[in-house]
Design a protein around this nucleic acid. Structure first.
Length: 256
DNA sequence: ATGACATTCAGCGAATGA
């Protein structure tokens, strides 16, 4: 089973690149974030032509998440539990075969002052609570997407972020570690413990050319799923394409 | 210290992002 997660930064602008990626990689599931459109504006046809179904939680202009799948999936949640009323389209959860798949776009936390940052931490605590509930229910799951967290100093290029950036603050990392310490596995770090690996490069200041990137897109696996992990790939080549997203796909392969 | 770049909605600039 092959799953990819990709913050596409507008699915309407990027529909061609996404279709090319699907045709080449043929993932069973593609989790997209920042689709930046309402459900009715979603460009489903190029994906349908490649045999993909779409489950969409959109909103006008900002945020928005969607799951493309080669098999029909059942939508379990259209918002993170306890986070339903914030008006942000940031979570969709589906059942795929024996797995529960959560696709998330976590708040950045740098805008909106203290309230904005508190909202990020609160979102992370709700995610931890939901993950704990799924573990209690003995569900096997993957929680993947744009976490907007650099878990350690190895996860961003020197000089790419300030020490008090919401992506690296101690409280942010503590909230991420609280997820890990439930027993979840960071798929990329499980197979590549030491490499500098990035999934995002800013459009500004030549960040891509200078490899000043961040690792903020993650796939966290519940214990029995982690035992089935066989490969991960960060599709860096997507960042070199014409009119790219600032994020690239993270691809995770799990034994069936 | 600042801006750099891209996207959306609007409408010839503002808001947001990480």
């Amino acid at each position: 089973m092959k799953l990819a997660t990709w913050n596409v930064n507008s699915v309407r602008i990027r529909a061609g690149l996404v279709a090319d990626f699907l045709a080449r990689e043929q993932p069973d599931l593609l989790l997209m974030q920042e689709i930046k459109c309402e459900d009715g504006q979603f460009p489903g046809e190029p994906f349908k032509d490649l045999g993909y179904h779409a489950a969409i939680v959109g909103q006008k202009s900002y945020n928005g998440v969607a799951v493309l799948s080669r098999e029909p999936v059942e939508v379990r949640h259209r918002a993170l539990p306890d986070q339903e009323h914030d008006g942000h389209a940031r979570y969709i959860e589906v059942s795929f075969r024996d797995l529960t798949i959560g696709n998330l776009y976590l708040p950045n936390g740098n805008s909106g002052g203290d309230d904005g940052y508190r909202a990020k931490i609160s979102w992370m605590e709700n995610l931890r609570r939901h993950a704990a509930a799924m573990l209690d229910a003995e569900q096997d799951f993957i929680l993947a997407g744009d976490y907007n967290v650099c878990p350690t100093d190895a996860d961003f290029a020197k000089g790419a972020l300030g020490a008090d950036d919401a992506l690296v603050r101690p409280e942010t990392r503590a909230a991420f570690n609280a997820l890990i310490w439930l027993g979840l596995t960071d798929a990329v770090r499980a197979l590549h413990p030491n490499d500098p690996l990035y999934t995002f490069w800013d459009y500004q200041a030549g960040a891509w050319q200078r490899d000043r990137g961040l690792r903020i897109d993650h796939a966290l696996l519940s214990p029995r799923v982690a035992e089935r992990l066989v490969a991960v790939d960060i599709a860096r080549a997507e960042r070199d394409k014409p009119q790219p997203s600032d994020h690239v796909p993270v691809v995770v392969s799990i034994m069936d």
